[in-house]
Design a protein around this nucleic acid. Structure first.
Lengths: 162, 162
DNA sequence: TCACAACAATTGAACTCTCAACATAATTGA
DNA sequence: TCAATTATGTTGAGAGTTCAATTGTTGTGA
């Protein structure tokens, strides 16, 4: 739908906006498909699972509350819960009761999980570099940081309001 | 995994690159989740289906070959085939034999499908505007276009090679 | 012309994600 | 103190995606 189909009250995208949106959309569709395919082939897990392992590996004790982990990985609680099920089946993560809140659960990265993460990391970085980072100038790296941060802030503000 | 875990031959991301990648990743995870949720609530379809209808609506005759439609929507053939199944069940799209190639199939947007698309468009544009376009300056809109286009070109070149 | 490769599209199973519903525990405030 | 509210996490069903295998068609080179 374009500006040639006017509907009262709708501000359509102008040509520049349309191009930006399509470029962002298509780049993202293509890249995330490529990323997931590569992660699946090289490391036997989807990218989302890799990010869970990364987040756990960055903490002291390689453990984190489920709710905290969901926020950090930008995941829903339900998605995380299912994902941790799969990761537990593979022995990469274990669940433990939270000592300070009986509702809580801790996700803990096992030594095996850490080894799997370490093995997966190089090819993951290689793909991100090849298709994103190394394609862009240092200036564009800064621009992408600003654009991404701005979008995140807007979405988080929106979240807090409704 | 960071530069603090050196592995021979791997070029890790430096701090600026790391920030850019995380900002892009998280903005995209948050935004596409929000977009899909909104599309599902307001229009009863995932964003990917909306894009299929848009592409069909942009052609003369509201028809396109499956393979062509797959390329334009940055979709796999399999994904598209399943998606068209669902869209056909709802009466928004119909399949027809291709007159020039007996292997081929045409996807055709029905009048009902077009009406559904027209009804869905305003709230779709509103979300894209709210969370992306209206958050960015005209300069950032240009930057995002360039960044996205660069990434697309790299991925397409990679595709042609291997 | 014919065998063989490449192309177009589909299929079904396995997997991931979403959504709503649920169970349990902590917190709030009257 | 205790009922109502809020928070944490899980579950199962339904929906979408992926991957490999399959069918049928077209193109190519000997």
């Amino acid at each position: 739908m374009t500006a040639s189909v006017p509907i009262a009250g709708t501000r359509w995208l102008d040509e520049d906006e349309q191009r930006a949106w399509r470029a962002y959309l298509e780049a993202t569709l293509l890249f995330f498909d490529a990323l997931d395919r590569q992660m699946q082939q090289d490391s036997g897990m989807p990218h989302a699972y890799y990010e869970i392992l990364v987040r756990l590996s960055e903490t002291d004790g390689h453990s984190m509350r489920m709710s905290e982990l969901a926020v950090r990985t930008r995941s829903s609680r339900s998605r995380l819960s299912h994902a941790i099920d799969r990761l537990e089946e593979r022995g990469w993560v274990e669940r433990a009761d939270c000592p300070t809140d009986r509702r809580g659960q801790l996700a803990h990265l096992t030594d095996h999980g850490f080894a799997v993460l370490a093995a997966a990391a190089p090819s993951h970085v290689a793909v991100v570099r090849k298709h994103v980072i190394d394609q862009l100038s240092p200036e564009q790296i800064r621009q992408l940081t600003d654009i991404g941060t701005t979008i995140i802030n807007g979405l988080e503000a929106d979240d807090r309001v409704g």
